[in-house]
């Protein structure tokens, strides 16, 4: 899932400067699961903002709504009516939600309440950890399912580097050296010989290159109803 964290209240309050009414909009998918921007977090942030406004003696009318996803048009459109009555929508979706609500709702300002952090897994109760770098061309078949792009501090493809010590990364002893994990995994599978294969430099053109990524499925494309009715 996409993992995010709420921005500090001061920063949120600052970005709402000049607004007299705001719709705090939650998203019912990833950010609900990582407890950053679901219905509960909307309630908490709305309450905090109301209290701040009261303490500061400013006028701020706060509405609350949570939709299933902020990255699908039919759900984002559900925010239109409430949002258009407000000076701004404070989105508790990830960055995708903020961008897409801006695009779909057009006339109303959309302001982010979260910092989108990474693609991660729920590794323990209340703990989320990065597991994928979204690099566009997955290479973990060569590293037995463990991603060095996301999990190695230097994203190196042929590790470990010289800083790996007792299984931890030189960047921070709290971080497991992912190349140690890869080594151990390959060892346990009896595939250590695979480590001798040198991975070629990665083709980054599949990732952060050439502008925004786009992908499509022709079997899910909109049907040209004009033609069909002829």
């Amino acid at each position: 899932m996409i993992v995010a964290e709420r921005k500090p209240l001061d920063e949120i309050q600052q970005s709402l400067e000049g607004c007299k009414s705001v719709l705090v909009a939650g998203c019912g998918t990833c950010v609900t699961v990582c407890m950053a921007g679901g219905e509960k977090e909307v309630g908490v942030l709305a309450s905090m903002l109301r209290m701040r406004a009261k303490m500061d003696g400013t006028e701020l009318d706060i509405r609350e709504a949570t939709v299933q996803r902020q990255c699908d048009r039919e759900y984002v459109e559900q925010l239109a009516e409430l949002g258009e009555e407000c000076d701004a929508i404070l989105s508790m979706g990830c960055g995708v939600g903020v961008n897409y609500a801006t695009e779909v709702l057009k006339t109303v300002r959309v302001i982010p309440a979260l910092n989108t952090r990474f693609y991660g897994a729920n590794v323990d109760e209340g703990v989320w950890s990065e597991r994928c770098g979204g690099c566009g061309e997955c290479i973990v078949a060569s590293t037995e399912g463990i991603c060095p792009i996301a999990r190695c501090s230097k994203s190196i493809l042929n590790g470990p580097c010289g800083g790996s010590q007792d299984g931890t990364c030189e960047v921070d002893p709290e971080i497991a050296c992912v190349w140690q994990l890869i080594y151990d995994r390959m060892d346990s599978l009896g595939r250590l010989d695979k480590l001798e294969e040198i991975l070629a430099p990665k083709d980054w053109s599949k990732g952060r290159d050439g502008g925004p990524g786009t992908t499509s499925r022709e079997d899910a494309a909109a049907i040209d109803r004009g033609e069909a009715s002829e």
Binding site: E5, P8, L9
Partner: peptide, 10 residues
């Protein structure tokens, strides 16, 4: 969660 503190009003 990112958080900052504001000095409580006395």
């Amino acid at each position: 969660m990112m958080s900052d503190e504001r000095e409580a009003i006395d």
